[in-house]
Design a binder for these strands. Structure first.
Lengths: 157, 157
DNA sequence: CGCATTTTGTATGTAAACATATCATTTGCA
DNA sequence: TGCAAATGATATGTTTACATACAAAATGCG
């Protein structure tokens, strides 16, 4: 038996990739259960997209995708579904006939206003087992790493 | 204008859910690019599944799913694709004819042995912008939160 | 101006990720 | 022992997530 050892390989639970996946899993589950409990029917991505449109009404899909760090194709599908729900509207831009300007409908604004406090409150439940200080520290580190990546990306040729 | 304020809403970049999604995004991208660069063709989940099978040969799919914290249905699909690649084998269990015992094939063992060091090395690139100390701290916090959730789940009725 | 290049959105295909339902089998208990 | 409940795998459907390719339109440069 060549590879008989006490600890054959690093445990999965200590690999950064695995831990981050677990956090993401928890995060989306908390989002789904708490928004559903509040009578809302939307996904994390749908909320992020609506938030971006709320803050930049008339934004085109490519800018929207860049703003919330998603793929252009993914956002296309997300907007499709938001449009089907009647929460969002697509208009062909007058400046650029390739672009579609996205805005919230009246119903969309209502849903977003309802969802915002729920989503803000639920953030606290995403990292269970951490003290407020640890929670804050975690977010700082995450933000630092994410920003590092963003600035690197923006420096790319 | 009723809701005219300096900062209308919490920026997306400071929400835990968004930050974690970004980390997850970076993580999978680093995994994909570095494994591909090493001549490997596998996804993070496929690697995790192969690692679990490597450590517990003959494990059934449900136990495997529980071990790496995935849905049973998802793992079914993952094993399908690993089987198609010829890296994994499914055998109907003699103890329980509902269960399928999964093992690595010879080719699967070879691929796993090749992938393991690559995946271990790539972990360091998943959190760019953090010093080694910060990196360690981040993992500790992530682990603490994840374990907290696990133990809570196991206490559930 | 004219044309190569870039950009916007969409289509297609693959792979998660999970809820829900179903079928076969096993288990637990009255 | 017999049958209800639980369990393992699969099927189905929805939503990300992204690569690649494409058509239409805009841009930039010689």
């Amino acid at each position: 038996m060549i590879d008989e050892r006490i600890e054959p390989t690093t445990p999965l639970e200590s690999l950064a990739g695995h831990l981050i996946r677990r956090l993401h899993q928890t995060s989306t589950q908390v989002f789904q259960s708490q928004t559903k409990a509040a009578g809302l029917d939307l996904t994390p991505v749908q909320f992020a997209a609506m938030k971006a449109v709320h803050e930049a009404p008339g934004i085109d899909q490519a800018s929207l995708a860049a703003r919330i760090a998603y793929d252009r194709a993914t956002i296309g599908g997300v907007i499709d579904r938001l449009e089907q729900k009647g929460w969002v509207q697509r208009t062909i831009s007058l400046r650029d006939r390739r672009a579609r300007e996205v805005t919230l409908t009246k119903a969309g604004k209502r849903v977003f206003a309802e969802a915002l406090p729920v989503v803000q409150d639920l953030q606290a439940d995403i990292l269970p087992g951490l003290s407020p200080d640890e929670h804050r520290l975690f977010l700082e580190l995450a933000q630092k790493s994410t920003l590092g990546r963003d600035s690197l990306a923006s420096l790319a040729p």
